[in-house]
Amino acid sequence: MSWRPYFTTARLALREAATYRLNHFLSFVVAVVPLIALLLLWNTLLGPQQRLAGFTRGEMLTYFILTRWLYEFTGPVVWWDIAYEIREGDLIFHLLRPEWYSGYHFALIIGSKLPYALVGLAVAAPFALSVGVGWVWPPGVAAWAAFALSVVLAVALAYQFTFLSSLTAFWLEDNKAMNLLMDFVVPLAAGALLPLDVFPSAVATALRALPFAQLLYFPALVYLGRVDPGGWWAGVAQQVGWLVALLVINGWVWRRGLRRFRAVGG
């Protein structure tokens, strides 16, 4: 299999996304407003010397800003394009071509989200500066590399969740419930709003055992240098394990779904 078509797909998605410049500006505004509000809240709740669940004020603000930005890539969603193609029958074009469907949409997501991630970086950077000396950087090159690898695996894992939730369109005429799950429950379980350590111990332990923690919480802790080498290997092993499990599940669901596919509207 050649990877070139998928690089081209990502490039085309980036080009297509770049045609909607007003969207990016609006997404900038939409991202900035709640970020200001939440940072003000954290500043009010946590004094410079205070800690919350073992996190200093600087760590908490770094975690918060970092995860807000990372979630653009490591947050699973119901990918509307897949759900639409299944429901409306446009999946037929992909089945006709010698194409790896899952890879095609992964490339589309990466390409189309890149401008938003760059806008997000532009939003996050001034806030990171506003945190000042409290802002936390990974402690060294090895920590940066460990963080980068955990993010790459988180992105791959998130996409497998995205693909799985989108494939439910083979069975569900309406994915709204799945959307709600992805928009509200998964971010909480992934540690997008708060580090899982903030939750009561039993809840935190349960959430850490779920795969969603590997999407955001684990990479963010690696960034903050709060994971020792043993913990990092264990975390990466979990990421790989969940990834393999989801690849197997998705393959099975895809084949079952194709049996149900009616290719309507042609």
Partner: peptide
């Protein structure tokens, strides 16, 4: 083989057809 449907299209709405033709060239090698 190829299958063309009058009711549906596979070209991307916002991009020129040539971009997609190049993508298809790579897919079909």
């Amino acid at each position: 083989m190829a299958f063309v449907m009058g009711r549906k299209g596979q070209l991307w709405w916002d991009l020129p057809a040539l971009d997609l033709f190049h993508l298809f060239r790579e897919m079909y090698q």
